[in-house]
Amino acid sequence: MDQAPVLYAFVSFLVFLISSLYAALIFWSPQSIITYSSEKKYRCRTSPNKPIPLPYIDDPATVDLSIIVPTYNETKRMPRMLESTIKHILSIPERKTEILIIDDGSADGTADLALEYAKENLEVEIRVITREKNSGKGGAVRHGMLHARGERLLMVDADGASRFEDLELLWAALDRLDEGNPNHVAIAVGSRAHLVKTEAVVKRSFLRNLLMYGFHTILRVLGVGHIRDTQCGFKLFTRTAVQQIFPCQHLTTWIFDVEVLLLAKMLRIPVEEVPIEWHEVAGSKLNVVTDSLQMLRDLLILRANHLLGRWKVSQNTVKIVPSELISRTSM
Results as ranks from 00 to 15, higher is better:
40 K>N: 11
211 L>W: 02
143 H>Y: 09
305 N>I: 02
303 R>H: 13
125 E>F: 00
270 P>M: 03
21 L>E: 15
3 Q>Y: 15
61 A>R: 00
254 W>I: 14
49 N>F: 07
105 G>I: 05
123 E>V: 12
54 L>S: 03
222 L>K: 03
143 H>V: 07
186 A>V: 04
263 L>D: 06
10 F>A: 15
47 S>V: 01
105 G>A: 08
244 Q>T: 05
250 H>I: 09
295 M>S: 15
262 L>A: 10
238 T>Q: 05
64 D>W: 00
87 K>G: 07
280 E>V: 14
244 Q>F: 04
98 E>I: 07
237 F>C: 00
118 A>K: 01
270 P>R: 03
184 H>I: 03
316 N>K: 09
71 T>Q: 03
71 T>M: 07
250 H>E: 11
76 K>M: 10
31 Q>Y: 06
112 D>G: 10
324 E>R: 08
258 V>A: 15
258 V>G: 07
135 S>R: 15
14 L>S: 10
245 I>D: 08
296 L>E: 07
315 Q>F: 01
325 L>M: 04
40 K>R: 14
154 L>T: 05
321 V>E: 13
198 T>H: 10
265 K>M: 06
200 A>E: 15
302 L>R: 00
99 I>E: 04
65 L>W: 06
25 L>Q: 13
229 D>Y: 00
127 R>V: 04
223 G>R: 00
179 E>F: 08
54 L>K: 00
22 Y>Q: 11
220 R>P: 00
77 R>I: 13
14 L>P: 00
265 K>G: 07
205 S>H: 03
322 P>V: 01
148 A>M: 02
222 L>Y: 10
137 K>C: 11
207 L>N: 07
184 H>Y: 10
118 A>Y: 02
321 V>F: 08
140 A>W: 05
95 R>H: 08
295 M>V: 14
159 D>S: 14
232 C>N: 15
277 E>T: 09
71 T>I: 01
203 K>L: 10
309 G>F: 04
169 L>V: 03
133 K>C: 12
129 I>E: 10
51 P>G: 02
107 A>M: 13
327 S>D: 04
173 A>V: 05
176 R>L: 11
192 R>Q: 05
306 H>M: 12
13 F>N: 09
214 G>R: 02
109 G>K: 09
205 S>T: 14
109 G>D: 14
54 L>I: 01
328 R>G: 07
20 S>D: 05
206 F>A: 13
315 Q>E: 10
297 R>K: 15
28 W>R: 13
153 L>W: 04
128 V>Y: 05
270 P>S: 05
299 L>F: 12
